[in-house]
């Protein structure tokens, strides 16, 4: 004790201790289960984002110009492929319209409630990325839509290629997106994602519980033994967990093996979306269910 008091006499040591206690206190505060950010945080984030948005997009245009020149060669092949896809799309579109009409008629005949009808009527809000974090373990993206635009925490965020993450926190004019690469069983900030396979929605089931940074693959667990999941199958969200909307592409199955306890299978999933050079993302807004219940 006396030793400690002697140490405390040293001013520098004392200040260090105070600083350390403050540091622990701030970490504790940020770990606590808060619903909203405090106002100084909101103010700082919004004002920084205001400046950041002048830089990110122009930089993207300039970088995109050079990338376009580099891609010139592959553009012919790409065009060929797109034409084939477009032809397939127009065929499917006719089929889809027909089925949609039929589906609507069935819903009417079965007397679906308003809530049931609106349940899967998702709104896709387009947002611009304004900054990317430079911390390797915390790759938060900032986007330029906030609570004023109806963004709420836990909304799913996708690109045209696939799911990239969820909204972690919102300020009036910006939102922070936690990428799906931070998915971790032990961390509290990310909920596991219930997924299924495109084309076999009611037969397959799995839960994305982890992202393995060393192999850059998602780990999908709790797959039933008789599941006919195969290599290169497209993984989509199933909407069963309640947090994520259904039908968002996540990635493709790479392999399937017996899980830790031998009762279920695990699979590794390659992400469809890439996190480099992001410009536009879509925030998926699920229609309010609570209001309908009241």
């Amino acid at each position: 004790m006396i030793e400690l008091l002697k140490l405390m006499r040293n001013k520098r040591m004392f200040m260090l201790m105070i600083g350390f206690i403050l540091f622990i206190a701030v970490i504790g505060y940020s770990l606590s289960d808060r619903k909203e950010l405090s106002w100084p945080e909101k103010f700082l984030k919004d004002s920084t984002a205001y400046v950041q948005q002048w830089f990110y997009k122009p930089a993207g245009y300039i970088a995109g110009f050079f990338e376009d020149i580099r891609n010139m060669k592959t553009i012919y092949e790409e065009n060929e492929q797109l034409r084939i896809t477009a032809a397939a799309y127009s065929r499917d579109k006719i089929k889809y319209n027909f089925i949609e009409k039929e589906n609507e008629r069935y819903k009417e005949e079965l007397r679906f409630t308003k809530q049931q009808e609106e349940m899967f009527n998702y709104k896709y809000l387009i947002a611009q990325v304004i900054a990317v974090s430079n911390d390797a373990n915390n790759r938060t993206l900032s986007i330029n839509l906030g609570s004023k635009n109806g963004i709420k925490p836990n909304m799913a965020v996708t690109t045209v290629k696939g799911l990239i993450g969820i909204v972690r926190s919102v300020t009036p004019f910006t939102a922070s997106v936690t990428p799906i690469t931070e998915l971790n069983e032990t961390s509290q900030s990310f909920n596991p994602v219930a997924v299924t396979i495109l084309g076999r929605v009611d037969e397959s089931f799995g839960i994305l519980s982890n992202y393995n940074k060393e192999t850059s693959r998602l780990v999908m667990t709790k797959i039933a033994e008789d599941d006919k999941m195969e290599f290169q199958d497209t993984v989509i969200t199933s909407g069963l967990g309640g947090v994520y909307p259904r039908g968002l592409v996540v990635g493709t199955v790479e392999n399937k093996q017996l899980g830790d306890f031998g009762l279920t299978y695990t699979a590794t999933v390659k992400l469809a979306a890439s996190f480099d050079h992001l410009t536009e993302v879509f925030v998926v807004s699920v229609p309010e269910l609570e209001e309908a219940e009241q």
């Binding site: 403050l22 770990l31 974090s133 911390d135 938060t140």
Partner: peptide
């Protein structure tokens, strides 16, 4: 602290403390 707040993801104050220290 500015970096911690603007890119808040998990914890607050790590960058502030160690950058300062």
């Amino acid at each position: 602290m500015l970096q911690d707040i603007v890119y808040f993801g998990h914890l607050l104050g790590i960058n502030a403390f160690f950058m300062g220290l």
